[in-house]
Simulated assay, not measured.
Amino acid sequence: MKKLYLAILSLSIIAASGSTFAASVKGGSGQINFMGIINNDACSVDGSTGKDKVISVDMGNVSIKDMGSDTAPNAGRISANDFNLKVNCNAGTKVSMVFKPSLNGGSGLVTGKKVLKLQGSDAAKGVGIALLDSDGAVIDLTSDTTALVTTGLSGEKAAGGDGTLSFAAAYVTTGDATTAVAGTGNATLPFVLQYE
């Protein structure tokens, strides 16, 4: 009888504690998920937005007749659009930048040319985007070697090295301008910072 009484008493205590717990949870419950990546990158680029570090350059509305060619982008009536990338580096870091047009999500190149291909089914035909360095020379995007830009940043200051890289981009015809077809002019050019 004592064993039966103890068993009933134990069950009563368990049932009572369960109902107390259930009574204390009111109004629902949920959770918060935090996601991110902590890195130790020696350099970063200002002006980029979002976790994918996207930098937007507005190329405007350009007529085919006003464009230069892929070999002479500045020969057209419309000059190239200038844009800057501000790079911030840790002290002592030597950095260079390489453009990789065919990296994940990149537009790729116009076949046989040094310029970016336009993306999308409604993209202009016979037109690409030439990337120019700070001297106005076309950057050859066909290989990692020719698409490499040394920055001159070495992070010599105690707080690190900050600097601005200047570029320009221009719509260009990639063949006979009279056969080019109007359309959208969007392209994506991934880049990678390399450190020493």
Rank of each mutant, 00 (worst) to 15 (best):
M1I: 07
M1E: 08
Y5H: 06
L6F: 03
L6S: 06
L6G: 02
A7N: 07
L9N: 08
I13Q: 04
S17C: 12
S19C: 02
F21N: 11
A23T: 01
K26A: 06
K26D: 15
K26W: 08
G27C: 05
G27E: 09
G28Y: 15
G30Y: 03
G30I: 10
Q31E: 15
I32S: 12
N33V: 15
F34E: 08
I37E: 09
I37A: 12
I38M: 08
N40G: 09
N40K: 11
D41Q: 04
A42N: 14
A42V: 10
S44T: 05
V45G: 00
G47A: 11
G50N: 10
K51F: 11
K51W: 08
K51D: 11
K53F: 12
I55G: 05
I55M: 10
D58G: 12
D58M: 08
N61F: 04
I64H: 10
I64Y: 10
K65Q: 13
K65F: 13
M67R: 03
G68L: 05
A72N: 09
P73K: 02
P73T: 10
N74C: 08
G76D: 09
R77S: 14
S79A: 15
D82S: 13
F83V: 06
F83I: 08
N84D: 12
K86I: 01
K86E: 01
K86C: 00
K86Q: 07
C89F: 00
C89G: 01
A91M: 06
A91I: 04
G92W: 00
G92A: 07
G92C: 06
T93N: 04
V95Q: 01
S96H: 05
V98F: 06
F99H: 05
S102N: 15
G106Q: 03
G108P: 07
G108E: 07
V110Q: 03
G112H: 03
K113Y: 14
K113C: 11
L116K: 06
Q119V: 08
Q119I: 10
S121A: 14
D122A: 10
A124K: 12
G126T: 13
I129Q: 07
D133K: 04
D133W: 02
D133G: 01
D133S: 01
D135N: 05
V138T: 13
I139N: 00
L141N: 03
T142Y: 02
S143A: 11
T145R: 11
T145G: 04
T146R: 14
T146I: 14
A147P: 10
L148H: 12
L148E: 15
G152H: 01
G155I: 13
G155K: 01
E156V: 00
A158N: 01
A159T: 04
G160T: 00
G160M: 01
G160P: 01
G161C: 03
L165A: 05
L165C: 06
A168P: 02
A169I: 01
A170C: 14
Y171R: 02
T173N: 10
T174F: 06
G175T: 03
T178P: 00
A180H: 12
A182S: 14
G183R: 10
T184A: 15
T184P: 09
G185R: 13
G185P: 08
N186T: 15
T188R: 15
T188M: 09
P190D: 10
F191Q: 03
F191I: 02
L193N: 02
Q194K: 13
Q194Y: 11
Q194A: 07
E196H: 15
E196F: 14
E196Q: 15
